[in-house]
Amino acid sequence: MDPVLTVVIVSYNCRDVLLGCLESIRSSRQDVSYEVHLVDNASTDGTPGAVRELHPWVTLTASPENLGFSKGNNLVLRQTTSPFVLLLNPDTLVSDHAFDCSLASLANNPGAGMVSCRLVTADGSLDLACRRSFPTAWDGFCRASGLSSLFPRNSLLARYNMTYLDEFRPAKVDAVNGAYMMVTRRALDTVGLLDEDYFMYMEDMDWCWRFAKAGFEVLYDPGCTIVHLKGQSSRTRSTRMIHAFFDSMELFCIKNTHPRPGFGRFATLAGIRAWKWLTLMRNFLRSDKRVRP
């Protein structure tokens, strides 16, 4: 019998956390029939060999080059025919019946095309990116100025990460995190694949935008919780990663929220750039403090 769900994972030099993710899937209890496809983006840490040895049940594609997130996922999305597809990050730990919960959420909401779950970091705190609004110039200002952190319960100032919502209640949202995105085949066939103009970051936001534009709801369902191990090795992020994130946010603005030149685009891009440079400054200061004796 063909599987109901195809799980797609894209990895790059993250062997240990990936093996933990695959083991969590294998040991979890799920009622739905599923298959797991892994696309490895030319890792140099022995990922393909370790997966072949320890998890031969996984369908592995070892790419000779780093394709990025969108192209890596699209390799599988073009091939799979299952009724549901889950994009899953390699730095996640899957809980019992997580897949079943998400499938039930889609089944109970006929207008939905995508659902995500409650994502928490290693310390159990909510991963704020698991439910978001589409970014605006105002959101960039609130994030850059720190207003969203000072007033997390204010729906005007903390709109982007929606921290004013109860994390344990389901909600219709603008966007969810690419670490866990389950979609229906009907929506996928209508919306199309991930946009390969994005190499890393914001491709998930772009996909959610296109789902909404096509008339499909995007859901946040905290009925299950997944651990997302991002950002645990250090408090700092590399300068390259910060530039990549904000460059992708600018691309999202130009492609979607403000496709035509004008004041709206100018203001939004200005807000994004201010947010980027403040993030770079804070990252530098944190790094500086961390290495001082």
Rank of each mutant, 00 (worst) to 15 (best):
E35T: 12
S24D: 05
V85I: 10
S11G: 13
V218Y: 00
L86C: 03
P3F: 10
V17I: 12
V173A: 00
D197I: 02
E65P: 00
R282F: 01
F84H: 05
F99M: 09
C224K: 05
L103F: 03
M281G: 01
I272E: 00
F263H: 14
M181C: 13
M162K: 01
R29V: 05
S149G: 15
L229V: 13
R78H: 14
L88Q: 14
S148H: 04
H97C: 01
E23V: 08
F199N: 06
T257A: 11
S125Q: 09
Y201D: 13
R132N: 07
L251W: 11
E196Y: 14
V7K: 07
S95C: 05
H55F: 15
Y198V: 14
Y180A: 12
R169C: 03
R185V: 10
R118P: 00
H37F: 03
L269Y: 08
T92E: 00
A175W: 04
R237P: 01
N154L: 05
L188K: 00
R169L: 07
L128F: 08
K213P: 06
F284H: 11
C101K: 08
R159I: 14
N283P: 00
D16G: 04
D45N: 11
L86Y: 06
Y160W: 01
S149Q: 15
H243C: 04
E23N: 09
D221K: 04
L67N: 01
D197S: 06
V10I: 15
M162R: 06
S33W: 09
P152V: 11
T225P: 05
L165E: 12
T190Q: 01
I272V: 08
M281E: 12
A42G: 02
C130A: 02
D139G: 00
T80S: 04
W209Q: 03
L18R: 07
L119H: 02
N177Q: 10
A104F: 01
K71V: 06
M241E: 01
F246Y: 15
T44N: 07
V291N: 05
G124E: 07
S82Q: 13
G223C: 01
D247I: 07
S95D: 03
T136H: 14
F216Q: 08
